[in-house]
Design a protein around this nucleic acid. Structure first.
Ligand SMILES: [Mn+2]
Ligand SMILES: [Mn+2]
Ligand SMILES: [Mn+2]
Ligand SMILES: [Mn+2]
Lengths: 237, 237
DNA sequence: GCATAGAGTTAGAGGTGACTAATGATTGAC
DNA sequence: GTCAATCATTAGTCACCTCTAACTCTATGC
């Protein structure tokens, strides 16, 4: 049995920080936060996460809800946001200063986030001019709140015949990011949704002059907002 | 008892890497590498180092000599040099790109050195233009050997009445580095040794127009070479 | 109703890294 | 020559992180 223990007496090890960050991001995306889901993202076994969640709960950083799901307490959120801030600032720095490609920054930041001191992070933030968003369009939390964590509309639920403004692309899957980048899909890009096949069939889009069919898993990674009827394109073409 | 185990089966944890680096640097300075000395530098207890040295010995990375002293094997040297390369490249990057002050880069690099991937290190090296030396004048090891680890003459054994070209300043003691920087003492600077007091008394030096007395511990941190009689100054003044 | 699949947890174990306290070994002082 | 200081090691604990194997629970399907 694990004792109840205030958060401050628990060391913030890499495993603890990674778990907090994962819960924060998954919950932000509105996905259920279960033991196995977290285990998958962290590449560890479910028992490892089970024990970790128990420790985090005892420390008052996590609350368990009905069906074994996990949610951050307010205190847990504060710590998680700090880790997310480090992670996203580092991603931004790696891309802007060292030209690390889009699909590699996540893995590098995952390691570095546990090794940057607050002072160093501050220098990085200043050097970048206090950026708002990381290379995937994810908001960088600030001390005073700042931009929220809202994820907008997922591409697979965008209506056909409308334009779609891409705001965020989920950064876990490196190969998927490379593929999407090849297609020209990135935050800030506007695409047209031309056709939606039912039952998990492909979603047809246009990126500039090029048409592409996206499989369902890919569409789950892209978030943004529906902006205008695609009919406007007809007047241009 | 710890089994004999080839190096490749032993994880290169931060504790392992820090120990290898510390042995490498201490040995490079010609100082005896004992359990307590390493423990002091790593801020851990002697038993912790004792056990670590036993593991490193079993892995074929360290050899114990006569009086319990430790020395790196050739294989151990290879790994240690890699850690030192990461450490010094990071120090250089932090200073040149992020303006981290001289006396802080060591502590930051001590944490980051365990979190940079080979790919990222390569990008850092390229971004810096493959630097030779870190902010303290320490040589950055390269794959093909490169500059050696020689430490030159220690300032306390420089003769009075001669000029002294500073090549390296030992980077462990942050407060000492700050003090020396205030005095204008840094790699590449030339000073004049004006007077040597015996029995650990102060060493008098001139940095440009300013005269300073250095206590013995400080003189142990500065290495370089004796370059010319200080009498040459008289013709200038 | 019951079997099965999926998710979560418990049990048991091993590796790493850290500590304190006690014990050996060497050296230097008196 | 003995005592004390210094150094290294051993012994004994403990926390953390990870695993596999086994168990529980809860839908879901037939
Ligand atoms: Mn991480
Ligand atoms: Mn990101
Ligand atoms: Mn280190
Ligand atoms: Mn250095």
């Amino acid at each position: 049995m694990i004792d109840v223990r205030p958060c401050c007496t628990m060391p913030h090890t890499p495993a603890v920080e990674d778990t907090l960050r994962t819960i924060f991001v998954r919950a932000g995306r509105g996905e259920p936060v279960g033991t196995s889901a977290v285990a998958d993202e962290l590449h560890v076994s479910p028992p490892t996460v089970s024990i970790m969640l128990k420790r985090l709960t005892a420390a008052g950083l996590v609350q368990r809800t009905d069906g074994h799901l996990a949610a951050l307490t307010e205190h847990g959120s504060t710590h998680a946001r700090d880790v997310v801030r480090r992670h996203r600032l580092l991603e931004t720095f790696l891309q802007r200063v060292l030209d690390v490609p889009w699909d590699e920054v996540h893995a590098e930041a995952d390691a570095l986030e546990h090794a940057v001191s607050p002072r160093l992070l501050d220098r990085i933030d200043r050097h970048l001019g206090h950026p708002d968003r990381d290379p995937h369009g994810d908001p960088i939390p600030r001390d005073g709140g700042g931009i929220g964590e809202e994820w907008g509309v997922r591409l697979d639920s965008a209506p056909a015949g409308r334009a779609f403004h891409i705001e965020r692309v989920y950064d876990r899957d490196s190969a998927a990011l490379r593929y999407l980048a090849d297609l020209g899909i990135a935050p800030g890009v506007r695409i047209d949704v031309t056709e939606r096949q039912p039952f998990g069939g492909p979603l047809w889009i246009r990126v500039g002059p090029d048409a592409h069919a996206l499989g369902e898993p890919l569409t789950h990674l892209v978030h943004g907002r529906v902006v205008a009827p695609a009919g406007a394109r007809g007047t241009l073409a």
